[in-house]
Design a protein around this nucleic acid. Structure first.
Lengths: 135, 135
DNA sequence: TTACACCCTCAAGTAACTTGAGATACAAGA
DNA sequence: TCTTGTATCTCAAGTTACTTGAGGGTGTAA
């Protein structure tokens, strides 16, 4: 498949895919006669892995370490496991934070409904708990 | 409190706080006699909100819109509510995704333990696991 | 009063992309 | 076959959101 197709399948942008290739996260893609990149199913899986890892905040350098470890033997496996463990604990606290953020937004939405829905021309109250800005 | 203290409480770095002030996300802080910034509890709450929003991936400009809308009238309130609603639904799906990811990472760590611990000199299976997870 | 962590400003650097310019490639319709 | 439109190419520059470093003042405890 060409770059546009793998982009659609992995939800990565086209320039991002070329960028990852340049960084060495993806192997240099095969080229068609005319020089266009040709990707395989293997590339899809690898790119999907990269995108997921990036989506939850793993820095590229760490992704690179994991990718490297994936083809190595026992010792590398142990280091990959450590990286995964580390990420696991970070994800847990992230999810906790997300829950808190969800709670504040929910409260804001409710307050805003009350305030906006009242028909009164008054300042929005959704950020009362955040304090006043811009002054 | 001084900048180091608010940094500890909000888990923001000191330069990041100064950066947010420069961008106008935080009001210009009061200063001590000698010119050091002095923050209040209000700033803590506001900064905590900003950090959570950023952690979750809300761009600064969107955070700014939300904060700005908080002092406007009815129309702005309604648009702020829409932004909040939108973000709320995105947060929910993100949290679900994180939950799934946590589960699969947990599984990987376990499998890696099995694989690494077995004493066999075989490639680590982590990459395959993540690449094919959740689809 | 000296030690040391903390604070200041301003400039430059970094990570991870994104956008733009200018040129070639492919697929479908007139 | 020609045209039109979408996809692709490379390379360079721009963007976002910080982080780091240089050079220098501040607060406090021993």
């Amino acid at each position: 498949m060409r770059i546009g197709e793998i982009a659609r399948r992995t939800l990565c942008s086209v320039p991002t895919i070329r960028y990852y290739e340049a960084l060495g996260l993806l192997p240099m893609a095969d080229r068609s006669e005319s020089g266009q990149r040709i990707f395989s199913q293997k590339d899809v899986v690898r790119l999907q892995f990269i995108r997921r890892a990036r989506d939850f905040g793993m820095p590229i350098d760490l992704v690179r370490q994991l990718l490297a470890a994936s083809v190595e033997t026992k010792t590398a496996c142990a280091s990959a496991r450590d990286i995964v463990r580390q990420q696991l604990s970070e994800i847990r606290s992230k999810r906790h934070e997300l829950t808190r953020l969800e709670a504040s937004l929910q409260m804001m939405a409710q307050r805003c409904d009350d305030s906006c829905g009242s028909g009164a021309e008054q300042p929005c109250t959704i950020f009362e708990d955040i304090g006043t800005a811009n002054q």
